[in-house]
Lab assay of single mutants.
Amino acid sequence: TETYKYDDKREAEKAAEEFRRRGITVTVEERNGTWVLESK
């Protein structure tokens, strides 16, 4: 599991889209005002 942090929800979702395009499952969730993207 890799974790990436973003200040902006849009950025996180854009990154998530890129991962999914490569066939990687990711989750995006907000933690304490930071958007956390996790690849499984």
Rank of each mutant, 00 (worst) to 15 (best):
R22P: 01
R10A: 14
E29L: 13
E30Y: 15
A12Q: 00
T27N: 07
A15V: 08
T34I: 15
S39E: 10
N32K: 05
K14V: 08
T34R: 12
E17Q: 09
R20Y: 06
R10T: 10
S39M: 15
D7R: 14
A15G: 03
S39P: 13
T25Y: 15
K9G: 03
V36G: 02
T27M: 08
E11P: 02
N32V: 03
Y4V: 08
F19G: 01
T3A: 09
A15Q: 07
T25V: 13
E18H: 08
A15L: 03
E30D: 07
D7K: 15
T3D: 06
K14D: 08
F19L: 12
I24L: 12
V26F: 08
T27W: 11
N32R: 03
R20H: 05
L37Q: 01
A15P: 00
A15W: 06
K5A: 12
K14P: 00
T34D: 05
K40G: 11
F19S: 02
K40I: 13
I24D: 04
L37P: 00
V26A: 05
K9W: 10
R31M: 08
Y6S: 02
T3C: 14
V36T: 06
K9V: 08
E18Q: 09
W35Y: 07
Y4E: 04
V26S: 02
G33M: 03
I24S: 04
S39D: 07
E18W: 14
V26Y: 07
E30Q: 09
K14E: 11
R21Q: 08
G23S: 02
G23F: 03
E2D: 10
F19Y: 08
E17S: 06
F19V: 02
E11A: 12
V26L: 05
E30T: 04
R31W: 08
Y6T: 02
E13P: 00
V26E: 00
T1L: 13
R20S: 06
V26M: 08
E13H: 06
E17A: 10
A12Y: 02
Y4R: 10
Y4A: 06
A16H: 02
K9Y: 11
E13F: 11
V36P: 00
R10C: 14
E13V: 07
V28C: 06
T25D: 13
K14I: 10
T25M: 14
T3L: 12
E2W: 14
T1M: 13
R20A: 09
E30K: 08
T1Y: 14
D8T: 15
K14A: 12
Y4D: 04
T25S: 12
T25I: 14
T1I: 13
D8Y: 05
Y4L: 10
D7S: 14
K5D: 04
S39W: 15
G23Y: 02
T1G: 12
K40V: 13
K40H: 13
Y4P: 05
R10D: 13
T3W: 12
E2K: 13
E11F: 04
D7Q: 13
R21W: 04
A15M: 09
N32I: 02
A12S: 02
E11H: 07
L37T: 03
W35M: 01
R31Q: 08
Y6L: 02
R10M: 13
D8P: 01
K9H: 07
A12P: 00
K40S: 12
K9M: 07
E30C: 14
V26W: 02
A16I: 05
T27Y: 10
T1C: 15
K14R: 11
R22K: 10
I24C: 14
V28F: 04
A12C: 07
E18Y: 11
R10V: 12
G33T: 02
D8R: 05
E38V: 15
A15I: 05
I24N: 06
W35E: 00
K5T: 15
E18L: 09
T25R: 10
N32T: 03
A16M: 07
W35T: 01
F19M: 11
G33P: 01
D7G: 11
V26H: 02
T3N: 09
T27D: 05
V28K: 00
E17Y: 07
D7W: 12
T34S: 13
E29P: 00
R31V: 11
A16G: 02
V28G: 00
K14G: 04
A16N: 01
K9C: 08
R10I: 12
Y6N: 00
E18K: 07
N32L: 05
Y4M: 10
E2P: 11
T34G: 13
T34C: 14
N32G: 08
A12L: 03
D7N: 14
R31T: 05
A16L: 05
A12D: 00
E29M: 12
L37E: 00
E30N: 11
L37H: 01
V36R: 03
K40E: 10
T34H: 14
V28S: 01
R31C: 09
R10E: 14
D7H: 13
A12K: 00
R22T: 04
V36I: 13
E11M: 10
R21A: 09
G23A: 02
D8K: 06
E2G: 11
A15S: 04
T3Q: 11
L37I: 13
L37A: 02
E29G: 05
K9A: 07
V28W: 03
R22I: 06
K14M: 11
E17I: 08
I24M: 12
Y6E: 00
T25C: 14
A12G: 01
D8A: 05
A12F: 02
Y6W: 05
A16P: 00
R31N: 06
G33C: 04
T3P: 09
Y6G: 01
W35N: 01
A16T: 02
E38W: 11
E13R: 03
V28A: 02
R31D: 06
W35P: 00
